[in-house]
């Protein structure tokens, strides 16, 4: 039982301290924040699963669209780049090359895009309930990762159909997927904070993302196209070490027989790990720094 003095009139702050009350809405420390986030892991996955299921719930074909959409996307790119513009000219196994690129890029690009809207698009939720706000961008990425796993299943079937032989090298796809997921979660966290302060950023993202996509060799081979041009070496290097290109090429290297290690930049695994760590850790800390400010103003 706490005994409070009756004689002296207490100030509200003293009364609060005497009964162990705390200031509402203060930012928790980083370890505590991580613990809170871990405590909400079921919410993160349930929210991701719920949104995944709700996406096509009114469509007549329902969940089939999770598979149809990326496949249709890939066939459009095949028609434009492979047939009309003949980008397939220098690339052996162009169809597997293209599909892997499109599917992986879909995940990276949509993660950044979804991150931008993760906090700003859920203001109702942010203003109504208490939970670590990082749950929102992370749950967006979890949702997109589930989507990626579905398309990866389709990719495997397509690869087999186009005559690729499964081998132990395919296992390299697993660490690549993992690093990619960490990288994307970090990007989503950064963009979530930026997008919550500047909602206008989401209007600019399509242009940024399109530029990023075209310069990352999603539907053309950086290696074979730029070899013939007289571009300085550092431009090629920059294009090839940009995170999207690194992860896409790692997946191709893992899954496609004719995609040799020579097409990869030097030290590709350290670079992939570095990007994941930089985005993952940096993004998380950057997001946490503004934790108490989301959904306000």
């Amino acid at each position: 039982m706490t005994v409070t003095t009756v004689t002296a009139p207490q100030s509200p702050a003293e009364l609060a301290a005497a009964h162990g009350l705390t200031v509402s809405g203060a930012r928790p420390s980083l370890p505590r924040y991580l613990a809170e986030l871990w405590g909400r892991r079921h919410f993160v996955t349930a929210y991701a699963g719920a949104r995944m299921q709700a996406t096509y719930s009114t469509a007549r074909l329902g969940q089939v669209w999770h598979l149809m959409t990326p496949l249709l996307n890939a066939s459009v790119y095949y028609f434009i780049f492979g047939v009309v513009m003949n980008a397939s000219h220098h690339v052996p196994d162009y169809v597997p090359f293209l599909i892997t690129g499109v599917f992986v890029w879909d995940f990276i690009g949509s993660s950044v895009n979804a991150g931008t809207r993760a906090v700003h698009g859920n203001l109702g939720l942010v203003r109504a309930l208490h939970f670590p706000r990082a749950s929102l961008p992370i749950s967006s990425v979890v949702q997109l990762f589930q989507q990626l796993l579905v398309t990866m299943g389709a990719l495997v079937v397509l690869l087999l159909a186009f005559g690729q032989t499964p081998g132990p090298a395919w296992l390299l796809a697993l660490p690549a997927l993992f690093l990619m997921a960490v990288f994307c979660a970090g990007c989503a966290l950064v963009m979530a904070r930026v997008g919550s302060k500047n909602p206008d950023v989401s209007q600019l993202m399509p242009f940024v993302l399109r530029t990023w996509m075209y310069s990352s060799g999603v539907m053309w081979s950086i290696d074979s196209v730029l070899r013939t041009d007289h571009l300085p070496h550092w431009v090629t290097l920059l294009l090839k070490t940009n995170p999207a290109a690194v992860y896409i090429d790692l997946m191709r290297f893992a899954l496609i027989d004719s995609f040799k290690a020579a097409s990869l930049p030097h030290h590709v695994w350290p670079i992939a790990i570095g990007w994941a760590l930089l985005a993952g850790v940096g993004g998380f800390v950057y997001f946490w720094k503004a934790e108490e400010e989301y959904g306000r103003g």
Binding site: R51, Q53, A54, N122, A128, L129
Partner: peptide
């Protein structure tokens, strides 16, 4: 809690 609920589910 309404904000967390989804009408399609």
């Amino acid at each position: 809690v309404n904000a967390a609920l989804m009408n399609d589910l």
